[in-house]
Design a protein around this nucleic acid. Structure first.
Lengths: 193, 193
DNA sequence: CTAGGGTGTTACCGGTCTGTAACTTTCAGA
DNA sequence: TCTGAAAGTTACAGACCGGTAACACCCTAG
């Protein structure tokens, strides 16, 4: 009713999906477990039967989000089978869609900003997942025949990361509006070397 | 004693400085007013005599931080009077020093991530101050004789913003390690156009 | 010396937070 | 139809949060 989540799924799935959404919109420290369970159409006890703690829920949410994101890479391969350069351009395109569709940035980066305790269980997960994403982008650049693949991948990563956080500071009309142009001319200049 | 702030200054100044430091290290929602006043060697009542609310304190902290940052620009002009291109390289150098000295990124960007309420008083301040910084960098690029000054400035902004948030996710050995190389080759390529 | 503003101290308010206990209801499968 | 696990309900514990009231203290300007 007040709920955007498919009503008849298992409570654990509803909690996970609702928590992802609410953490994303309001920040991790900006939403309590009561609010999550209420929005998920269940209650706190059920949450704690499925998750050890809020921290555990956070970790599971990050893993779920990363898992969704990794499915996007399969789309690239499906749409441009074998054509790695086209897949790289598709990456840029997809990134720009993310920017225009959603102004709250990357859940993992946001979590890293919010969870300042150096030993927070989510921090190792964030690092692990971000490094996996980096590896994918490096491999894509390399397979697209670009010489300095690592450098291009890292530059594109920083540009996107910067665009997603810049949107949260100054909005979509700020520097992030030029993301596609920046990324494409970067790729062109790396290809020309 | 447990306190890094100069002991004998006015309580208001101590609170402001301590709050900046603690907000930076632990995040805005990660530190309470009690902890701030205790670290500042004073008490909560004194804080509320000088600041209307925690939100007001947050805003003043952001303004103070931005004011410190703007003094850096004076250094550029002092060290390389009239030589705008040298000042731009000094900006890159200074940015990389920020990256190696501190892994908690930009206070304004972090605040934008944490304070998700769209009508939070800090949000307009963040936008305002970030836009002012952007204007400065655009002017510097233009005065350095670069044609597409806005595009270079925005690209450098996104790179730095991305580097500062990337450090918080994957650490200093991640993509942000290449920031100087990226920035310098960007400047070179814009100058060659 | 004295008046008064800035500061410190203590206690408190109402609210929210994570997490738990004890109990009841629902519902699917044997 | 019976059983047993999953889920819902209510209440609560203990801590912390932002913010305020009332009062005692100091210390400097006059």
């Amino acid at each position: 009713m007040t709920d955007g989540v498919a009503e008849r799924s298992r409570p654990r799935d509803r909690i996970l999906e609702t928590a992802q959404d609410m953490f994303h919109k309001h920040g991790i420290k900006g939403v309590g477990v009561d609010a999550i369970t209420e929005a998920a159409g269940t209650n706190k006890m059920t949450l704690y039967r499925h998750f050890e703690s809020k921290d555990d829920l956070i970790v599971e949410c990050l893993r779920a989000t990363a898992s969704k994101a990794s499915r996007i890479w399969d789309e690239f391969e499906a749409k441009h089978p074998g054509d790695k350069l086209a897949q790289l351009h598709a990456w840029v395109q997809k990134a720009s869609e993310l920017l225009s569709a959603d102004s709250r940035g990357c859940d993992m980066a946001n979590a890293a900003v919010e969870l300042t305790e150096t030993d927070h269980p989510a921090r190792r997960v964030i690092k692990e997942l971000k490094e996996a994403q980096r590896e994918k982008l490096v491999a894509l650049c390399r397979d697209a025949g670009i010489g300095q693949a690592e450098l291009l991948a890292d530059t594109l990563s920083l540009l996107l990361e910067g665009a997603r956080v810049s949107m949260q500071s100054v909005g979509a009309e700020g520097p992030s509006a030029q993301f596609v142009r920046m990324a494409e001319s970067l790729i062109a200049s790396f290809r020309a070397r």
